[in-house]
Design a binder for these strands. Structure first.
Lengths: 212, 212, 212, 212
DNA sequence: AATGAATGAGTGTTCATTCAT
DNA sequence: TATGAATGAACACTCATTCAT
């Protein structure tokens, strides 16, 4: 599923190049200044071209935001899938997934922050597009949990824990002013994974004994 | 600490009344239409007075947002403190706090959503004001954890777990399209608290044995 | 039938006043500079208010044009009807009508010129509105001809001659660089009416003799 | 008198060919979309070449309009002169001229409509160029009238009647929604010519008798 | 000679804010 | 104290025109 943005430029390769430029410049700009406050002229300038050229590659200001969102999620998904596919489901696989995900959230923290800050400003269809990508990511975690802890966890546990992992990754970037002051990424990853492991271990014990 | 908004009206009681009106109308409006998209005229209308009157009680459009933020955090803090004050520190106290907090996040989910969506649009000093209130809340959880699990948890554990609780509460509202489809608030609270308890239990075991 | 333009101003009397101002200024401006070339800022200035105020009384630039058109046709229609109503159908009545109409076209020549220059730029529904008013005017002439020359003229003659009168009136303004150099309005009216009378006389003779 | 448009192309034959292409495409486009609304890109496309190529054959967008005007008037003049040259001045010659002219106005009605709709948008010098061509046409009618009815008509009559003929021809295209619903071109021509003849006959009678 | 990517001045429109009543 | 008409800076977007290839 790809959203068609539209352009009056004929050279497809050039479009790709310019849009990459644009997306990069835009993220940079949006870090300092939110989408709403950034003018189209500023966006153009940040991308290194004129306002006229900007509008050769997009149709609406909104499209810039979409470009940013799309780039992030594609990156996230690509990286996550690369990690997942190569691993046997196991505690180690879960660790690998969590570590990769947290690592990614660290690297892309600006982009992800931008994405979430602006998501609500996108038109409904673009919002759904992003939420779908998000669902796919949640599914990755759910699958790993399911594969590795099928008999320790209920369906509900899996959903809840996946969500917890998901937002703990984002939290690293969102709440950096608290967390990154107290922890290194490694420490954060290790700590959270330990807490997670404890939960899973405990849930397993409980289930063994036949409790809720 | 109270942010001075400024007003040309002398009657303090009237100011309070009008601002309450304003804040209520604004949240209603912002639920449907983000702050950026809402015009001052719409805000005035939602509050039930004219654009001229609006500007008798605020100085800038931004102030409206600030009013909303302030109202939310005051409410949160008030309720949380009520819980804390009446409880001995214990597992039960933690449960009470978590439950109250989640309950509050459920009740105020629109407001909190609005607050977080717009936080970054506020001027730096207002942002800090909000983040300070947030810190106070985190401290509440930290205190309870400290009081009840002092020898089970390291300082880092406390910080991390407080943060986890904090965002899990917000998650209930932010990710409602996933979570509120799968869980009732009670179930969510119970599940998360159980997972939390398991963590704490496991951490305690570990510490007992003299581990990490 | 009145086209609703829309305004955010509540005082109806003020709206009327401002729109009259606007329409007057706009005609003045459009005499020198066509609608398309005139900027909204220029229009506002010509009307004596700021760009912001302009948009308190219209919704779109187009509305200005509509205001102009509407004012003109209402004026034309009102004046023509005043003349017609008071006259018995007769050669004299026809003369009165033609004279009044030509007189009017002389007085409103700028306005009418503007109207016809810009008519095609109006949205379809506004165009129809104007053409309807035009039809009403044609009918006035047709009625007079019918009443006074019923047995001298065929239906087709009436239509054609009405059209001829109609455009001869407009011609006085449109082709002023030729006609107003050669004739006074009185001379033009007299000449054209004489030519018209001759036609009618001849048609009558023809019909009397029973020919086409 | 030919207006110099300017081109960076050396090959004169190619220039003629491309400009013919351009003029044809432009009329087609302007029928649907007025000059002001048509973009240069659309004009280039309608002519079958790129925007870059368009600007090899014109200097300004305006030039396109000028090209259209020029083509129309040259055609009109050529045809009219063909008629004049081959005819003795007489009532029949007048009929031939009127018929040819009306016929042409029928064939070129789109072009003429475009021309008149946009005339006022042309720069002053181009407007004068067109009005001069118009004057030449009026002169053709004046000459025929003068030659054939010299002693029946005053100079003023000749001017007035020439103008009447002229605009009745244009009227056929301009007011097609009324006239072409009621008449065929032949019927219209015949009717108008009859009315004209009656006028001329009557004027002749009057002059004979020595009146005004 | 032909192309089409790049440019940026210019336009319609919005909306926070002011201020006379 | 309340009103709402007036203001103009600021913005998204367009499009005629240029110029390197």
């Amino acid at each position: 599923m790809v959203k068609e943005i539209g352009s009056s430029i004929k050279d497809e390769v050039l479009i790709q190049k310019r849009r990459a430029q644009l997306q990069k410049g835009a993220v940079n700009l949006f870090k300092q200044k939110r989408f709403h406050r950034a003018t189209t002229r500023e966006i153009a300038k940040a991308a290194g071209f004129s306002i006229g050229t900007l509008y050769e590659y997009i149709r609406k200001k909104e499209d810039v935001l979409f470009l940013v969102c799309d780039a992030i999620y594609n990156e996230v998904k690509a990286r996550m899938e690369a990690v997942i596919d190569t691993k046997e489901p196991s505690e180690n696989a879960l660790y690998q997934a969590v570590e990769s995900y947290f690592q990614l959230m660290d690297e892309l923290q600006d982009e992800v922050l931008v994405l979430y800050q602006e998501l609500k400003a996108l038109p409904k269809d673009a919002q759904e597009y992003v939420l779908n990508k998000e669902k796919e990511m949640l599914c990755l975690f759910e699958q790993i949990l399911e594969n590795s802890y099928a008999n320790a966890l209920s369906k509900e546990d899996i959903i809840l824990i996946s969500n917890n992992i998901f937002i703990q990754g984002q939290m690293w970037g969102f709440r950096r002013w608290v967390l990154q002051k107290e922890f290194t990424l490694e420490a954060y990853t290790l700590k959270q994974f330990n807490l997670l492991k404890n939960q899973l271990a405990h849930q397993a014990q409980i289930k063994e004994r036949g409790g809720v």
